[in-house]
Amino acid sequence: MKNQLVEYFSKISPLSPDEATAIADSAIIKTFEKGTFLLQEGQMTISTFFVFQGLVRQYSLVDGEEKTTAFFTEGQWIISLSSFDSPKPSPHSWVCDEDCVLLVGNDAAAQSLFKVHPRLEFIARKIVENTFAEFQATVTTYLTDTPEQRYVRLMETRPSLIQRIPQYQLASYIGVKPESLSRIRRRLATKP
């Protein structure tokens, strides 16, 4: 896992042996059982995770109903920065929907790592920017795409997701009722 992490960082910018060792030494990798909450709505924490293995779902409760707003899988960062400048309660929860192996970020450790290896701060920013870019693309689809288009896009870009999560969560994520998702799927299945 640690090698995987070092490799990930060096793809963004080549690392010196010192920098690679520093990353491997400071990384905290943990296993979380299915059903574990990494963050609860209302909690005031800044947390960062990287998914080596497994699936984490982000959702908010709206009038008592779970509204799924993101799925994080292998190779993705889970970054919550809403409480960054002034601590605010988290607008959503993160729950492990499969057994997960995650890198657990620690802001204090990162800061001291940046002091010794300033270039790692640059790489960290690139990671946030890349995650931001992906996120912006997702936000855009909510403004421009119909639920059917979002479903098709998801099939194209993250086909494994559709196998891994229950239909009602998928429906919530693309913004429709489970019945509408069934209709969308039937309609797509009959298309030539």
Partner: peptide, 22 residues
């Protein structure tokens, strides 16, 4: 400074989107 700025911007956008979608 710029790393923190990017992080704050990201945080805000995430929050706005969570509000938007719900």
């Amino acid at each position: 400074l710029t790393r923190m700025m990017v992080e704050q911007g990201f945080g805000k956008t995430q929050e706005e989107f969570a509000t938007f979608i719900t």
